Computed example of a mutant assay.
Amino acid sequence: MTVQTPAIVIHSLRYGESDLIVSLLTKTSGLRSYLLKGVLKSKRGKIRASLFQPLTLLEIEANHRNKGTLERIKEAKILVPYKSLHTDFVKSSLVFFLSEILKNTIQEEEVNEELFHYLETTFLWLDAHQNISNFHISFLIKLMQFLGFYPDVSNISLTVFNMQDGCFQNDSSNIYCMDGQTVSYFKEFLGTTFEESMDIKLSRMARNEILSMLLVYFELHLHGFKKPRSLSILNEIFS
C-alpha cells in the first residue's frame, strides 16, 4: 500500500557500507522502520541521507506492506525547514537527548495523531526560541500525558511525590517517594506552558535533580526504558 504522510525522524542507524535503517513516527501509520538502500553513497538520488537527521520534519511517500518488516520509502522531502535546531550547539545537543528519549519511549506502531502534533509543535517552538534552559524538563513532563503516566495532581498541595504510583501524598510509603525542594520545583512545571516554564529559575543542581527524578519516573512506568547516553552532556550544557 502506498501512503503519503508527514513524518518525524526518531532515529537512524547505519547498516552495512551504504544503507540506513531509519525509524520514523508517521502521522497516519504510527512508528515505522525503513530500509534506505545505497543512500549513504548516492549523491543524485531522490532520497538523501541528510534528510534523516534526528527530529527532522518530513513529508514521505512510502510502500507499507504491514508485515512487521522494514518498509521502503519512495520519496522524501523536508516538510518544514528548521532554522537553528541542527546548527545551534545547545539545541543540537538537546536534539540528540530528545531523540534518545523518543527512541526509548515510542515503541508501538499504533497511530497517535495527538502525540505527533505535540512533537511537531514543540520542535518548531524549540527551533524558534532562545530561552530554552528548561525545555527538556518541560518536554518530558508534557510527554507523560501522551504516554499515559502523567501525575495525578488532585492532591498537589501535599508534600511527597510518590513516583511509583504517580501521585502526591502526606508521607513516604516506599523507596520511590520524593520530597523537599526538588518536588516543589517539579510542581511549578505542572500545568504550565513552554513559555511559562522557561521563566522558572533553577540552579544547575536543581535542574539536574529534577531531570534525574523524571528519568527514574520514566524507568518505573516504561518497560525497557534506559537513561540517555547524552544525559551527561546535557547536564553540562545547562549548568
Rank of each mutant, 00 (worst) to 15 (best):
N235S: 01
S230P: 06
N104T: 03
A49V: 14
L222G: 05
E109H: 07
L234F: 10
N170G: 04
G16H: 00
F135N: 08
F146V: 14
R65W: 02
P228R: 03
N112P: 14
E120C: 14
P54K: 08
H11Y: 02
I141M: 04
L57A: 04
V22S: 07
T192A: 03
L147D: 05
V95G: 00
K83W: 10
Q169M: 15
P54L: 15
L31T: 14
I60A: 14
K74Y: 06
Q145A: 12
R72Y: 06
L58K: 04
L70D: 12
I21P: 13
F168P: 15
F89K: 05
L25K: 10
S50Q: 13
T26Y: 02
N208W: 10
N112A: 13
C177Y: 07
I106M: 04
F135M: 08
I47S: 02
V183N: 13
S212A: 05
V95K: 02
L215G: 03
I21L: 05
G68V: 01
D179W: 05
S138N: 11
V153F: 02
Q107P: 00
L143N: 04
S212I: 01
L51Q: 10
F225N: 05
S18A: 13
F186W: 11
H223C: 01
S239Q: 13
T28S: 07
I200L: 02
L119Q: 07
S92Q: 09
F218D: 00
